[in-house]
């Protein structure tokens, strides 16, 4: 800071240092200029709401009347008397782990099949992306219908080949796996990103590896994976966020499996069956907006943020390592 304020003429120190300082200061302003909208946006759309949420989390707030300060009451309730927050946290954790892994592996698998196609690549690629283009609520309803245990096409097909299909969305043990299938069906976005990365792995690398006698598994492990790792990492981050924010699909699927499509304004079917699809954000929304416990919802949000931040910290470290690799390449 002080270096930049010093007039150059009277500066006794060697010229190069001053030049460097000036470059540094100029760059600081450039950076500030480039980042300015983002900084303002970050503070307004992230910083301010976060501060407010922390404040609300210490209050009783029904959205209509002014918040009333109650100290740690909401946090105490979360860990003692309120039974469903634990269920919701478990469901979301389940999704974060299983969904993230499955989504990335599945997208990678499908992409590598498609990448081997000689004909119809463009068409198949479009078809695979189609479900991702459908509005989530409508897509979910249709998917649940297709998996209807009795008359859905999936179980009908399984029955025809002599397999007894399960209850899918109606079975508390299978509802989350079914939701995972739903997500895989709509994972076209990630699939296409990975496909593009796969198609771009330089062919010569495979050829030389083959000549060295490397089998398909070793080629995949030593050539394909390292080349597309930044993209896979993007997929992991993207999927994790997706799982943490899982909302619409869970609500719609739960109601549709109970034989109704009406989810607005009541909570009867939320989490159906047996609260196995009750995700953390859904419960947060129900507490805040349906039960008017916005203070409690805010406390849930704060906890979620802390956990997300822990995830974030780990991920950023991984990302930084990956980006160092990228720059070195």
């Amino acid at each position: 800071m002080t270096a930049t304020l010093r007039p150059t003429g009277t500066d006794p120190s060697p010229a190069p240092a001053t030049g460097l300082a000036r470059v540094r200061s100029r760059r600081r302003w450039v950076v500030l200029g480039f980042m300015a909208p983002a900084i303002v946006g970050f503070l307004v759309f992230f910083g301010y709401p976060l501060v407010a949420t922390v404040y609300f989390s210490f209050t009783k707030y029904d959205l209509i009347n002014a918040p009333v300060w109650i100290g740690f009451g909401n946090y105490v309730r979360m860990f003692t008397t309120e039974p469903l927050v634990g269920t919701a946290a478990y469901n979301t954790l389940w999704l974060v782990i299983v969904l993230t892994v499955c989504r990335v592996v599945f997208a990678l698998g499908v992409a590598s099949v498609i990448s081997r196609l000689r004909r119809g690549l463009g068409l198949i690629r479009t078809l695979c992306y189609l479900p991702a283009l459908a509005p989530p609520a409508a897509a979910t309803l249709v998917f649940v219908f297709v998996f209807n245990p009795e008359f859905g096409p999936v179980n009908r097909f399984l029955r025809a080949i002599g397999i007894d299909g399960g209850l899918w969305f109606n079975d508390p043990a299978m509802s989350k796996p079914s939701l995972t299938l739903l997500v895989l069906w709509g994972s076209g976005e990630l699939m296409i990103i990975i496909l593009a990365a796969l198609l771009d792995v330089p062919q010569e690398q495979y050829e030389s590896a083959s000549l060295d006698g490397a089998g398909p598994a070793r080629r995949f492990w030593h050539i394909t994976l390292p080349s597309i790792s930044p993209v896979l990492l993007f997929g992991v981050v993207n999927s994790m966020i997706f799982a943490l924010q899982f909302f619409t699909q869970a609500v719609v699927a739960g109601a549709a499996a109970a034989g109704t499509a009406d989810v607005a304004g009541n909570t009867k079917y939320i989490g159906n069956p047996q609260n196995s699809t009750l995700t953390y954000p859904v419960w947060l929304y129900v507490q805040g907006f349906r039960y008017s416990n916005m203070g409690y919802a805010a406390a849930m949000a704060v906890l979620l943020f802390i956990v997300s931040f822990a995830f974030t910290a780990i991920l950023v470290r991984q990302l930084r390592r990956a980006s160092h690799v990228e720059e070195a390449a």
């Binding site: 970050f42 992230f46 976060l50 981050v237 805040g288 949000a301 950023v316």
Partner: peptide
């Protein structure tokens, strides 16, 4: 690094968290 961290953190926060304020 901190700025980048903030970007990722902002992305990880579900929208339900920030809607009320």
């Amino acid at each position: 690094t901190w700025a980048f961290m903030a970007v990722v953190a902002a992305m990880m926060l579900p929208p339900q968290v920030v809607i009320v304020p």
